[in-house]
């Protein structure tokens, strides 16, 4: 589904990402974890066309993504949810979803667009799924942080992207909300490939039904199941600081 090779990007001399290889299958749910500044969001930025890397290749369904514009990549079937919720804060929740709805999106169709009943059904369906059905007439900007996250996920869902890049979906959510989000993501992965970036280990445990990748200082440290990763000494060092390894070095 997604094949990444030799990806390298640096900002003003600082290497932000140096990824030898990375790939996910169709309908896989992959979680990427890693400390701050590990290059997780940068990785997503590259895949969806927001950032241009110095070298490398990113293939989606066999097509090279690098060098394409955001809209093209989105049209190929890559959806993105940002770390900071990016929604249309001046519009109602309903209008947000309407704009997210898959279909022709050129100027003329929008200009002469008439709401079809199946479109409306689809919007209601997704709104129910993410739990925004009672907020359809609310102005999106006035939603709580958690609901904004859901709204953005809903927009990505309505787009029906084959690959969804979800950046920190549970940030700012209560445990109950986070669990609901987790279930939603697991559910999504039945029909879509999903990549999730997350910090909250409890949340990661819930959604890590498949592989977890650990990104540190721009490089892939390890990949494996949640248990494997959790017991990996290197990963522990990274998260708990290098105190352990420093001690070990001192002993030897």
């Amino acid at each position: 589904m997604l094949e990444v090779k030799d990806l390298k990007v640096s900002f003003g001399g600082l290497v932000a990402l140096n990824l030898d290889t990375f790939s996910i299958r169709k309908n896989e749910l992959r979680v990427i974890i890693g400390p701050n500044g590990a290059g997780k969001s940068t990785f997503m930025d590259i895949v969806c066309g927001k950032t241009k890397p110095q070298q490398g290749s990113v293939k989606f369904k066999g097509l090279e993504l690098l060098g394409r514009k955001e809209v093209e990549i989105a049209k190929l079937g890559v959806g993105r949810k940002f770390q900071k919720p990016s929604i249309f804060s001046g519009l109602t929740v309903y209008d947000n979803l309407l704009l997210g709805l898959d279909g022709p999106k050129d100027v003329f169709t929008s200009y002469f667009y008439k709401l079809a009943s199946y479109d409306k059904d689809r919007i209601v369906e997704v709104a129910e799924k993410v739990g925004l059905i009672d907020d359809l007439t609310m102005i999106a900007g006035s939603l709580s942080h958690g609901k904004k996250q859901w709204l953005e996920i809903a927009i990505v869902m309505l787009q029906d992207s084959e690959l969804m890049l979800i950046d920190e979906p549970a940030a700012g959510m209560s445990d109950v909300e986070a669990e609901k989000t987790g279930n939603l993501l697991c559910d999504l992965s039945k029909k879509h490939s999903v990549i999730v970036i997350e910090h909250d280990m409890k949340f990661v445990e819930q959604i890590a039904i498949e592989k977890v990748s650990v990104l540190v200082r721009g490089q892939m440290l390890t990949e494996g199941t949640f248990q494997e990763v959790r017991n990996n000494q290197e990963v522990i060092d990274c998260y708990l600081g290098s105190a352990n390894s420093a001690q070990q070095k001192a002993h030897s």
Binding site: G12, A16, T51, F82, S86
Partner: peptide
Amino acid sequence: DKGRHSDD
């Protein structure tokens, strides 16, 4: 300016 920065 170089670097990662959000547009919005």
